[in-house]
């Protein structure tokens, strides 16, 4: 059975079209990633799936239950970790979990056992009686995950789960998610960290301007770009490049920083002499040249047509290769 089914979902906010006839399904036990730039509609889609927003048209099913017509049954099947960790600041970690467990109708003894296990697994055992307002951002996110897992859902939705967290917290959360998926839980996450999706997800969808551009495994998506090599060149000082000069030998140029460029080429050896001439004519030195295999980011750029400035910002955000 499909864990998540999105059938022809359209969402308008006034005159703005946020989702445009989205169709998608996620199998049980799958680790699924929804990628897209800011404003692509990822959060809107997750809000529709979790019953926080109604679609303008279309249907969403959670393990066969229609989110609009059978909301209570559908909501019992999933846990939600939103981008903002919405736990109660004035309650302790323990009281937050107890409150959520009561709302899900978990018997008293069981709720205490589960809460203790979750706090242990998420590294919060020591802070069980501390008010959440004393927690760091990473701890709050871990508590939000614990609160989403207290009723042992079959599906876990996460909206940008590692956004704004330090490397250590992000790594810890990724490991927790991998472990949950290994145990059979369906994970549906949205992220703009492409490398995160590449590392974690069995399948990814790229959403842009409210439309699903492509859905496949990260490997297949990268393989679809195999005809493209990329050549990353760093000059010793800032420069600009006229795409016309290189038009014959490369299919695209992305400016990654003031002196760093990526050339998408069919044959890297053909463009090298041109680059050497270019540097000579401009009085520049080539500091490094790297040939790169396609990564998921290249697929992302291909489908979203993201501008070079955005690529530069993403380059700063993502891990170094």
């Amino acid at each position: 059975m499909d864990a998540v089914q999105i059938i022809d979902v359209v969402k308008h906010y006034g005159n703005v079209l946020a989702l445009d006839h989205v169709n998608l399904s996620v199998k049980e036990g799958e680790f699924f990633g929804l990628l897209g730039p800011n404003g692509a509609g990822k959060t809107t889609l997750i809000r529709i799936l979790t019953g926080l927003t109604a679609p303008t048209s279309g249907r969403t099913l959670i393990l066969g239950y229609d989110v609009l017509n059978e909301p209570v049954k559908a909501k019992k099947q999933f846990g939600l970790v939103p981008e903002i960790s919405n736990v109660y600041d004035d309650l302790t970690a323990w009281d937050n979990l107890m409150f959520m467990a009561k709302l899900y109708g978990i018997p008293e003894r069981e709720r205490e056992e589960r809460a203790m296990k979750l706090l242990e697994a998420l590294g919060l055992r020591e802070r069980v009686d501390s008010p959440v307002k004393q927690f760091s951002k990473g701890m709050r996110r871990r508590l939000a995950i614990a609160a989403a897992l207290i009723h042992e859902p079959r599906i876990l939705f996460l909206d940008e789960p590692t956004s704004g967290l330090d490397t250590q917290s992000s790594r810890f959360i990724r490991e927790v998610l991998r472990e949950l998926n290994r145990k059979g839980m369906t994970i549906f996450l949205t992220t703009h960290f492409i490398e995160e999706a590449d590392q974690l997800c069995k399948r990814v969808a790229i959403l842009d301007k409210g439309k699903i551009c492509v859905v496949d495994t990260p490997e297949n998506l990268k393989a679809s770009l195999q005809e493209k090599e990329a050549l990353e060149v760093i000059f010793n000082s800032p420069t600009s490049i006229d795409e016309e000069e290189f038009k014959k030998h490369c299919s695209g140029i992305v400016r990654l920083s003031e002196n760093k460029f990526r050339f998408y080429v069919s044959d890297s050896s053909s463009i090298l002499p041109l680059l050497v001439d270019f540097a000579k004519n401009k009085g520049l030195k080539i500091l490094s040249v790297n040939t790169l295999k396609p990564i998921l980011e290249d697929v992302f750029i291909k489908y979203t047509g993201i501008d070079p400035l955005m690529a530069e910002r993403m380059e700063q955000l993502r891990y170094k290769r």
Binding site: L52, K73, L80, P82, I84, N86, V87, L103, Y104, A147
Partner: peptide, 14 residues
């Protein structure tokens, strides 16, 4: 403001 209302809306209750 703290989005805890959304936590309640996404819980299984009408």
């Amino acid at each position: 403001r703290t989005r805890t209302f959304e936590r309640l809306v996404s819980a299984p209750l009408s």
